[in-house]
Design a protein around this nucleic acid. Sequence first.
DNA 1: CAGATACTATGACCAAGTATTAGGAGTAGA
DNA 2: TCTACTCCTAATACTTGGTCATAGTATCTG
Lengths: 193, 193
Amino acid sequence: MKAKLRKSERLKKLSKVIKEDPFITDRELASILRVSIQTVRLDRLELGIPESRERTRRLAQEATDKVKSVGTGEVIGELIHVELGQEGISVMETDKDMAFRRTSIVRGHHIFAQANSLAVALVDAEIALTGTATVKYLRPVKAGERLVARAKITGRNNRKYVVEVITKINREDVFIGEFIVFAVERPGDSLDA
Amino acid sequence: MKAKLRKSERLKKLSKVIKEDPFITDRELASILRVSIQTVRLDRLELGIPESRERTRRLAQEATDKVKSVGTGEVIGELIHVELGQEGISVMETDKDMAFRRTSIVRGHHIFAQANSLAVALVDAEIALTGTATVKYLRPVKAGERLVARAKITGRNNRKYVVEVITKINREDVFIGEFIVFAVERPGDSLDA
DNA sequence: CAGATACTATGACCAAGTATTAGGAGTAGA
DNA sequence: TCTACTCCTAATACTTGGTCATAGTATCTG
């Protein structure tokens, strides 16, 4: 069974190497693993790993999609309900890219980002900017948990809006924040209260 | 000179189309532009546009680099000075990807992210989590401006740290925040004060 | 020893190119 | 009108990084 062991180890190493460097070609893989190119191809086939060009293509596709989904929507998370000037709800799926690697705890600024962009989106004005924010993290959020943020405009004074945001995971509050948002005509206007 | 005009227009259209869809092949380009593949290749050569696979490769490379620069470092921005448990400075270059497209004003959560991650990094503990944050945006930040955040630990009570962050652009304050950060042994510990 | 499993080798083929050379079409100036 | 020119197309040979199928060798194992 010596060969089998060698093989399963090689398969592991193969996927590891490819994960680390998706651009690598079969030729390079062959020389790293000290086997023939054919073996590498068979191994890839067995593991269902596509060819180098396909891997690169997917990476690029994924990346451009990601950029678009972040850059195009002005709101972080998915807006599932909005009553302009009143209230709104946004949902955000968290993943390990948002978290500290050691603990899998989502970094605070992602939760803040969801809440902040929702608060800003609620204000019915050409341009709205956050003036101040007071937030509290009630419990750590694990990567993979689904954040539901509900925001309400609770006060208004001229161009100044008070927005309260509560973010929950399965009905449990995990984050609460108060945002003072300003509707601005020309950027550059003072943000002082 | 009719042909020349047609050509220069074609070149423009070529780079435009490629910009919109970097994955497109010469064959597809040829049928879109109603010329032969050879012409497309010559045009690309003239414009210094690499082949489709190379373009994809670069896209993927760029994307993975970006992901790494965000995901690898636990701190948003570049840490240029840290005295653990005392103070630290981080610098972040802003760009248009961080801003609202219409106004080029950097979204608040990016500024928050820099300050928050710096505050957390200052705490000398295995795991540190933000408990509460109170922040104020003093003036809008334009894409391209360089943010310098300086954080100081101003108080400590057992596992609870008070960190004050001031973010400046050329000595002008643009953001000020107070973060209460908790040093936690086991994730899941209460975050209440 | 036979048979299975693992590995290597070979050859035909493909996509999407590069690089080069050659030739036809239209146009502009002498 | 002829010539020279650019522009476009075509044809050919070669490259990379593969797929797919098929055959041969090595090695272990019952």
